Amino acid sequence: MHSDAAPDETPGRPPDTGLRADAERNRDRILAAARRLFATEGLSVSMASVAREAGVGKATLSRRFATRDELVNAVFADRMDAYASAVTEALADPEPWRGFTGYVTAVCAMQAADRGFADVLTMTFPAAKALEKRRAESYNAFLELVARAKGTGHLRDDFTSQDLVILLMANAGVVNATGEAAPDTWRRLTAHMLRSYAAPGAPLPALPDAPARAALYRAMVRLTRPGPT
């Protein structure tokens, strides 16, 4: 029976490419399974569930990813890159207020597209060094974006970086609560918050329609009876 652990290489002996290919396939299966589960169920999914979804044993999962932080780091590396790119694009906008509102909306959209990422943006993973490094870089760039937006007089002087964290926490809650029942609810929350950040006279973002009562009711039912409604 094959093991997915890569053998030691010895001088004069070619590596066992078959076993290495098996190990790489297992890693890809684990990452794909984790992405699916994290995106639909959030980060509360157990490592055992990830192993079952991937069709591998717990020992195989542990060899590839010894901790949850390692798995989260691998799964969300590309999304953290997109998160960092969003603030870079916002800083490049010649109109800082538009860059600010566009950035906040883009990040909230990323949360809405992936429940797992919605959680990632409101949690810390000390052992996931690469992920946390990208988060720190994005945070510092966001501080510059805030300063520029305030310089236009359009962003309230009392806005702080903590306000974005509060919004992301609130948005994660809305995304997780509404699910497929009212999937665009986050847009209205985000627009309301952006309007509250605006100084008098600032251009206000459009306010999307509120979710239909029936859709919001289905979301409320979903909270009490998890699963398809």
Rank of each mutant, 00 (worst) to 15 (best):
V75R: 06
F76H: 12
T60P: 02
M47W: 01
S85A: 15
D81Q: 14
V50K: 03
Y83P: 02
S49I: 01
V50I: 13
D69C: 09
L61E: 00
V45L: 02
A48E: 10
S46P: 00
D78W: 07
G55L: 03
T67G: 05
V45Y: 02
V56C: 06
D81C: 07
N73S: 14
F65P: 05
T67W: 04
A66R: 15
K58G: 09
M80W: 12
A59T: 13
A59M: 05
A77L: 14
D81N: 09
A66H: 11
S44I: 07
M47I: 05
T60N: 01
G55S: 02
K58R: 14
A82F: 06
R79G: 03
T60L: 01
V45M: 01
D69K: 10
S46F: 02
E53C: 06
G55F: 03
A86C: 05
A77V: 10
T60Y: 00
Y83G: 05
A86N: 09
T67H: 10
V87F: 14
A48K: 10
V87G: 10
N73T: 09
R79Q: 14
L61I: 00
R52A: 14
V72P: 03
G55N: 04
L61Y: 00
G57E: 02
A86V: 08
M80Y: 15
G57C: 03
V72N: 06
R52D: 14
A86F: 10
R68E: 06
A77H: 15
